[in-house]
Write a protein that binds this DNA or RNA. Structure first.
Lengths: 199, 199, 199, 199
DNA sequence: CATGAATGAGACTTCATTCAT
DNA sequence: AATGAATGAAGTCTCATTCAT
């Protein structure tokens, strides 16, 4: 019961995260209203607003990891898997714009409220490791299929994956700059970035 | 005199942006204290806190653009110029961690307070165009020097540049993951990402 | 429950209106303290300070109208009713001096803060109409009793009533100027003003 | 020189009093701008904002008294003088509406900021006496001309004069209620109120 | 368990007043 | 004498959190 209610609150908080683009603009009252519960009830399950949002973000990341793990188990080819992975990223990015926009222009932009960060940080490191472990399985598959050279450097393949994602971001953020490029073409390009960097 | 005082306030605000990692956590009182002026003085020069922070960010971006433009005029080789550009980025990123950290793990993270964004947005587009125009000059130089293939696609070279930066980010954020890589090696790798993607 | 708390706040605000003689000098903190509630609670029931004060004034006017209506239903003679009406006015005036004082000396004096006025205005017109409708009933009674001429002009009887009130004001404001006049004599004079103007 | 500058500031303040309908909404910066002088200059001539506004009001009242005195010396008939007096009142009222509107509906409305009042009060009493002395001369003339009964009671003639003014107010505030009445007719009615009450 | 009314700390912003020029 | 940049006290309003029901 307690588990369900927590998830209900997570989903409410996340839907607001997607809409607001600024974590500190999210109010406890909003979360409660979105979840159709009383404001006080939120505090039956969490100590603070920051804990709600922080845990909600972690919850979403974990979902992404599970989905990624399931995708890896489907036995698809590397390319199919990689494209599915990128498509998922694309979908997530589209829920919350502005991110890339500001980031590339000036690194002096900001990610999360310090208090939320304090909640997330201890578990984020571990989630990141899980994430890259899954990614490593995917990379291994591309080696097995002979698509890239064997035994790529850890830094190189991580850069390669992030570069693929970067292309996706770029297209998503400034579609008007690339009228000649359709969604599928961008995915192909992103795939080819990976291949080029690791061949 | 108005100009000097505004710059004083910009610098105070930016120093807090670097420290705080969350724009809405910055208080006008902090900015004033940091600038060694009274709270009310801030409002002699700006209409709102959001305007202060928004314009301060734009000010910093413009500084970066000027610096980039000067760098391009120094007549260095492409590689020297590109590495200098990446070094500058690296320095800026180091002032404000967390950005990449959260962004790559989950795009459901957030950039700026809506009110700040409203101040920035109208001018950001234009600054981005200037930025990419300068970048285009740099790319052209790499073509002239025969380092990459002629006439690269707009999307491809933008992706290539951003991928170089991505590698820098990665190393900066998780140095512990790459104990074998020194700063200069990472810059070389970032350079080679650009070359590989556009050859 | 919302209703009771609103009335509590109205009464607190009105007691301050009576004391302060300047609406914009009233602070939300004062209202809250007077009502024995927290500052924030005021904002649970009202959007702004101006709304509190504006609605409180309307509330008091409505009370006066209800009282007036009840008085009319008591079946007293015209003179008894009219004197009771004037006595009530007198009591209200005594709560807030200065009004007449300044008004008659120079019309360049001011009534209410613009923001309060914006709250009041839309409903004030309607309340005024109710007020004059009740007054019309009273006037009709004086006709029935043969005290004044039938079918008095609207402007004339309104002027007559206000002139009665004016006498009351005058006595209230400058009692030292009229040491020979007791309260009841003034009421008699005010009554006779009405009769003289409409006979 | 000092005198001229003070008058300049008085006029600026008064023009704002007429516009604002709420004394505490008037800012020193506004007064200075309106007078085309620096904000600091205001404080060369006055100790506080309240002193500026308070003295400006007194200045205007004194002007009215002088004008009234001059009018009395013109040797016009009582009726001509009385109508001229009422016309002047009418003109002043029209500069600042809302006054009557609120006053008659609820005496719980407010006149002036307490601090302004403190400036005005000591001199207002004396001005009022001057005002009623002039008025007494006017009343005496109506006796001489045989328009009213000799030796009217002080309270009665003050009430009569104020009742005349009340009619003017009424018409000014709610012109839509009296479409059948023109400006001159109202003045005639106001005159006749005086006559009826004192005959 | 669930609620939401009540709270008050804390942030933004205004503006009368000062004072160095 | 005149100025207006600088100031900070003071006031409005928000919202996370509590707690009695």
């Amino acid at each position: 019961m307690s588990r369900d209610k927590k998830v209900l609150i997570y989903e409410a908080a996340l839907s607001l995260v997607y809409e607001n683009n600024d974590l500190s603009a999210i109010k406890v009252a909003d979360i409660a209203r979105r979840a159709n519960i009383g404001k006080g009830t939120v505090y039956e399950y969490f100590h603070s607003k920051e804990q709600v949002i922080g845990e909600a973000l972690i919850y979403r990341i974990q979902q992404g990891l599970q989905r990624f793990a399931r995708l890896l188990d489907e036995g698809l080819s590397f390319k199919e898997t990689y494209l599915a992975f990128l498509r998922h990223y694309k979908a997530m990015i589209s829920k919350n714009r502005h991110i890339y926009n500001l980031m590339t222009m000036n690194p002096a932009h900001v990610a999360v409220h310090a208090a939320v960060h304090a909640v997330i940080y201890p578990r984020l490191r571990q989630l990141k490791d899980q994430y890259f472990q899954l990614m490593e399985r995917l990379v291994a598959r591309s080696v097995e299929e002979g698509i890239i050279k064997p035994d790529p450097d850890r830094f190189d393949w991580q850069t390669a994956v992030l570069s693929s994602i970067t292309g996706i971001f770029l297209h998503q953020q400034f579609p008007a700059d690339f009228p000649h490029l359709g969604d599928e073409e961008v995915l192909e390009k992103a795939y080819s970035v990976y291949v080029k960097l690791l061949s």
